[in-house]
């Protein structure tokens, strides 16, 4: 397979995924892993796409529909492929009054412990007077949970509430 990473962003509206994937399907493309989420009310999606076409040919399939939907897109050739999932063994939950630097502080501490982030999602919730930052991270680290806990403990003095728990994935 010769995967390309397709990124599409723009104002959200119903039917985007259906229109884009229909154009790709009609253009002879297959999809691999995809991830779509709304960020700040905007539509965002990343998709592994392959149809054996050149980047230019793939762009010509996407352009008509992305223009109709007023979306910007971007294509990158990519290495790697399917079946490269890694199973996380730790979950980290973070919340605190929103301010600059929370993500950098938490992920910096984790990184120093050799923690590899596999999934991360964050949100600003609450209201505009008292915004609250919430983040969940799943990842893999070789160290014991006590090592992560004591490393993250120092963030409590900065009013960042961080909680680590092990993920014991059940195979049945």
């Amino acid at each position: 397979m010769n995967w390309q990473m397709l990124t599409l962003v723009g104002e959200d509206q119903p039917g985007i995924v259906a229109r884009i994937t229909d154009a790709l399907y009609r253009g002879g493309c297959t999809l691999g892993e995809t991830s779509m989420i709304r960020l700040g009310g905007n539509f965002t999606i990343m998709m592994m796409v392959d149809g054996g076409q050149s980047e230019q040919a793939l762009a010509s399939i996407i352009t008509p529909v992305s223009e109709q939907l007023k979306l910007k897109f971007h294509l990158d050739p990519m290495h790697g492929g399917l079946h490269q999932h890694r199973v996380p063994n730790f979950q980290v939950r973070v919340n605190g009054a929103d301010r600059a630097g929370i993500v950098a502080r938490v992920t910096g501490v984790l990184s120093a412990c050799g923690f590899n982030i596999l999934e991360l999602a964050s949100d600003v919730v609450g209201d505009s007077q008292q915004p609250v930052y919430i983040m969940t991270i799943q990842g893999y680290a070789e160290v014991d949970i006590e090592v992560l806990e004591s490393a993250l403990e120092k963030l409590e003095s900065e009013d960042i509430d961080v909680h680590v728990s092990p993920i014991e994935t059940l195979i049945g």
Binding site: H83, H85, V87, P88, I167, E168, T169, L170, I171, G172
Partner: peptide, 10 residues
Amino acid sequence: GREGCLSVPD
């Protein structure tokens, strides 16, 4: 909780 399955590899 997180699960996997012998019948659903990867």
